[in-house]
């Protein structure tokens, strides 16, 4: 017979098995992955998040898509692409791109910053915000930011004639890096921290 405190039970991030918290590092009973105590997880998440935020700046300044048409070269940024679609009357697509490439990344940055601060310094302690839900939602919508990168890849692969050509711009790399690191930051964030300070 062993006596366990219910608060010492935790879920393995990889396989979901219930484990007893043994301090700093606990190897999971079922899959053997290391379950870290919260000590390092916010630092790692912060580092990824900062990288993502820095990469987001050039992603918006440089052209995402470069159209070469009969000798003239024209680049369009993410925001420029949205405006162009709006002016052409494709409102739903303009909205999808606006949500996926501009709104979601920014909301994700803000939510992660809020979560990372609130688990260390309980500012949101009394608020009624369901942080688990908030975290889960950012996890779910996060990958959809990749739409713009895929669209650029498809257009670049599809249109390369002698006179008309579309190529990806510098912002594609920057944006891909930004999305990649935001996803890493979200994965690195330890949900168990939310519970500890409730």
């Amino acid at each position: 017979m062993i006596e366990v405190n219910e608060k010492e039970l935790m879920r393995c991030n990889v396989c979901g098995a219930v484990n007893i918290d043994r301090g700093e590092v606990t190897p999971c009973r079922r899959c053997g992955s290391n379950i870290y105590h919260e000590r390092f997880s916010t630092q790692k998440s912060w580092a990824y998040l900062l990288t993502a935020m820095i990469a987001y700046i050039p992603a918006n300044l440089y052209p995402m898509l470069i159209t070469k048409q009969f000798g003239s070269v024209e680049g369009s940024t993410i925001l420029g692409g949205v405006v162009m679609l709006w002016e052409h009357g494709s409102y739903p697509i303009a909205l999808i791109i606006f949500f996926a490439s501009i709104l979601i990344p920014i909301i994700k940055f803000l939510v992660l910053i809020y979560l990372l601060i609130s688990v260390k310094y309980p500012i949101g302690k009394d608020s009624k915000i369901d942080k688990h839900k908030l975290y889960y939602m950012t996890e779910a919508v996060g990958p959809w930011s990749m739409i713009d990168v895929f669209v650029v890849a498809i257009l670049a692969a599809l249109i390369h004639l002698a006179n008309v050509e579309i190529v990806a711009g510098t912002a594609a790399t920057a944006f891909a890096i930004s999305v990649f690191f935001t996803l890493l930051a979200a994965h690195a964030f330890d949900e168990r921290l939310i519970k500890e300070y409730r």
Binding site: L85, S90, I93, I96, I97, P143, W144, M146, I147, F150, V151, I154, L155, L158
Partner: peptide
Amino acid sequence: IFLISILVALVK
């Protein structure tokens, strides 16, 4: 997400 991207690219 790639599937939706194809549709978005085509609309363009």
